[in-house]
């Protein structure tokens, strides 16, 4: 569904991605794990059109080379790191902005109900300014807002960052639920243990290079990965 070939990204003199190639299959949860600064967010920002890159990104047989708003239109939704909810607007306004490019009033209303069923917390707070939500609620809002664009693939950047352990589990449960709705998921995480537990396949990104790929199970059982990312001593 999404194929990336030999992607290079430079920030000034810094070579942030050094020839990354990967592919995402329809309907799967693919996770990219890696430490801070490995280039995970850079990868997602390249897909969603914020960065200039060398190499190619192909989505549904079409080469992506557009501005961010056109990429959303093609069915790619990026839920950014740090959630970036519009704190000056209400929860419902945030969700409706997620559907900014859509004109099917009926479909938008149905999707809004779906999001409220998935996140009952948001329904309770629909008229509240989203800046008053807790970190976990803001993460739910960011994911719900992403769903409102009715995407085919969701790029999730560190959804568990800064959340209490109990909420982390909730967020990962919700990601599984979203996949059941027929969405493809590209999940970028530092919490490798959790990410690998829900993913089908995984790539390991280190210093701008893919150093390993395989089924999530194999990666989770790989001794060097265990030691480096899962905190298990040999």
């Amino acid at each position: 569904m999404l194929t990336i070939n030999n992607l290079h990204v430079y920030y000034g003199g810094i070579h942030a991605l050094k020839g990354v190639s990967l592919n995402v299959n329809k309907g799967e949860i693919l996770t990219i794990i890696g430490s801070n600064g490995a280039g995970k967010s850079t990868l997602l920002n390249s897909i969603s059109g914020f960065l200039k890159y060398k190499g190619e990104i192909i989505y549904k047989d079409q080469k992506l080379n557009f501005s961010p708003n056109k990429i959303v239109q093609m069915g790619i939704c990026h839920v950014p790191e740090g959630r970036l909810v519009f704190a000056n607007l209400t929860v419902e306004d945030n969700l409706l902005l997620g559907a900014y490019l859509r004109n099917d009033k009926k479909g938008i209303k149905e999707d809004l109900e779906k999001v409220y069923t998935l996140f009952p917390r948001l329904k309770e707070r629909q008229k509240q300014l989203s800046g008053t939500l807790s970190g976990g609620e803001q993460q739910m809002l960011a994911m719900g807002r992403g769903l409102m664009s009715s995407p085919d693939i969701m790029l999730l950047d560190e959804p568990s960052l800064g959340l209490a352990p109990l909420l982390v589990q909730t967020v990962f449960d919700i990601i599984t639920d979203i996949r059941k709705m027929g969405k493809t998921i590209l999940l970028v995480e530092q919490n490798a243990f959790k990410a690998l537990s829900i993913a089908d396949r995984a790539y390991v990104l280190e210093q701008g290079k893919i150093i390993m790929e395989g089924s999530a199970k194999d990666i989770a059982n790989n001794p060097s990965i265990k030691e480096a990312y899962l905190g298990v001593k040999k």
Partner: peptide, 20 residues
């Protein structure tokens, strides 16, 4: 609403498909 969103965060509004 899109103007309000863009005034709050220009990157997040682009992610909503808003042509900033």
């Amino acid at each position: 609403k899109a103007i309000q969103a863009t005034s709050y965060n220009i990157k997040a509004s682009a992610l909503m498909g808003i042509n900033t």
